[in-house]
Design a protein around this nucleic acid. Structure first.
Lengths: 337, 337
DNA sequence: TTGTACGCGTTATCAA
DNA sequence: TTGATAACGCGTACAA
């Protein structure tokens, strides 16, 4: 396949100068209709396509945003991506999704590549929000916004959801329904979300005057359906006199696994065990027993993150902000019997 | 924030010429350890980052692949993306995911942008495999592979799965289980997959010597959970003497919706209705009643597509290939009672 | 071993 | 209205 044609080729074919071709592209009003037609014809003949690398080299800035995410298979992240996509589109930009698969090395690869590409801005849900790679990006001057994670220092913009509040909402809901023995299912605690939601759960529990030891923590190794099933086995292993009557799962995948395990074992939800999930993914409402869940404004999260990164890119007086959204409980049959 | 520093800045700071800096980057063996150290120190001091646009302009080729997909929220596509990601990684490339959201205009935007970026190659699951935008990409010389769709002409490489066979496997499985009234649920028929799987279903049905009118087609407007629920209502509206005893759904989302609708209505799966889905997404095995489903080698699909696009990019003698993978039925409780 | 000079494709300035 | 030319940052052939 021959080398793609350039403005120079177009100019030659249209018998005009290179500057005129450029004018046709960038200030068409300055060029006479006749020559413009000639040039446009030449472009069609040659199948001319602007070379974005050259434009960018010249302009010093690109027309793309990127979102580096942990796991494209988790609907939470793809919804966030969708929100960012909409914001990017209305700013006339492309959004590239990069899938780190939870691996620090691949995440670092992508970040480095994006910085080298001089993208306008990067959104990232990092494996570890304190990793030095993020600071490297900052030092190289590429705007970066942390999504769904937070850092104590105010070196970056971030958008997140109030997970402590989310945990509180979930447990308050169960307490109001009269439950006095509840299981908290989730882990590992290295994940900030897990810690925060547990903290919120404990706040609500204490506020209701319930004894500490009636809020059982069942630790999992990951936030997956399979772990949910295994947690279900452990819950059922608890003697019935001490068994919780409700469970709060750190995310919907766990809740779905738990639900499946219970119905396999012939138990009924919510009669034998009420369940609250977290994230309100599409499959939550579509489960065999529709799942009560804590909904996060996912699209809004992505949209706001994209706006912040653009502000950082364009406004010299940009101030970093930590945006915190408010979650909301959606009650369904898994707690309403 | 100041302009990012260039090789020129590094050269000035290290008191060497610009060519030497370039040598440190590209042929470090040619430069003496002493000056090399000096240059590397200057790079660190300035936070120097190569400008990929300039490199690419010079080199004429980029270091990225892209996958333009229909719906990032469908696990099928993200699994394909994962396979492509692995292949890209082992070739030392980045893979950018672009989400068209099933909209032809956004798909066209992305394809145009990628061609302008001169990416090494594009994988695409197009809204319409016959759309002219694909031919435009080809004419501009960017290698392109069609994923999970096919075209009759051999203008492109493509990777797909044998959907006729998949349809046959599903229905053969139901026939072997003794079902003689079966519903085919899916649509719209503008989607090639729907047509092919239906064709396969009919083949198997005819081969078993069963009468045409006992294979009922229930058309849906989309392949979503919500449509599955609505299909469920329609199935249940059929008088019990004529009601199918099994359903074959064109994808797992439909099957999950159907399953949910049935259990809401107090019917049992598979006793009242056996269900076969398609795709074998993670949630299929995790459903309240684990779903029998037709599995496609999704990661393999992505991996192979990436390999083909790289071959097209690198081998001047490249021949287009239509790769067709073989699906496989995974039997679970939704048909095994 | 190090330095100089040119070109990649585009855009913008300035002169004609 | 159109044309000539410089510059963006990098890589490389060639000269010193």
């Amino acid at each position: 396949m021959a080398r793609a044609s350039s403005v120079k080729d177009v100019a030659a074919r249209a018998h005009v100068s290179l500057g005129t071709v450029s004018n046709v592209l960038n200030r068409p009003e300055r060029v006479s209709p006749a020559t413009r037609a000639k040039v446009e014809q030449a472009m069609r003949d040659l199948g001319f396509v602007r070379n974005e690398s050259a434009r960018q080299l010249r302009a010093g800035r690109s027309r793309t945003l990127a979102y580096v995410l942990l796991d494209a298979r988790n609907p939470f992240f793809t919804d966030v991506a969708q929100g960012a996509e909409l914001a990017a589109e209305s700013a006339g930009l492309s959004l590239f999704l990069c899938h780190s698969g939870n691996r620090p090395s691949r995440e670092a690869d992508y970040l480095a590549h994006l910085v080298e590409q001089r993208v306008q801005g990067i959104l990232v849900t990092p494996v570890d929000p304190h990793a030095a790679v993020l600071d490297d990006v900052r030092r190289n001057g590429t705007p970066l916004v942390i999504v769904d994670r937070t850092r104590e220092d105010a070196e970056f913009c971030s958008v997140a959801v109030d997970d402590v509040l989310g945990g509180r909402l979930a447990v308050e809901h169960l307490v109001e329904a009269g439950h006095t023995r509840v299981a908290f299912i989730g882990g590992p605690e290295t994940i900030g979300q897990v810690r925060d939601r547990l903290a919120g759960a404990r706040q609500a529990w204490a506020a209701a005057g319930l004894p500490d030891d009636q809020l059982t923590v069942i630790a999992t190794d990951a936030l997956t359906v399979a772990e949910g099933r295994s947690a279900g086995e452990r819950v059922m292993g608890i003697g019935s006199s001490r068994r919780p009557t409700a469970a709060f799962c750190v995310n919907d995948l766990l809740a779905l696994g738990l639900l499946q395990q219970l119905s396999t074992a012939g138990l009924s939800v919510p009669r034998d065990l009420a369940i609250v999930g977290y994230d309100d993914i599409e499959y939550a409402a579509a489960a065999a027993v529709p799942l009560t869940s804590v909904r996060q404004p996912r699209q809004e999260l992505g949209r706001r993150a994209a706006e912040l990164v653009l502000d950082e890119a364009e406004d010299p007086d940009h101030q970093h902000q930590q945006v915190v959204f408010t979650p909301e409980l959606v009650a369904r049959r898994s707690t309403l019997g």
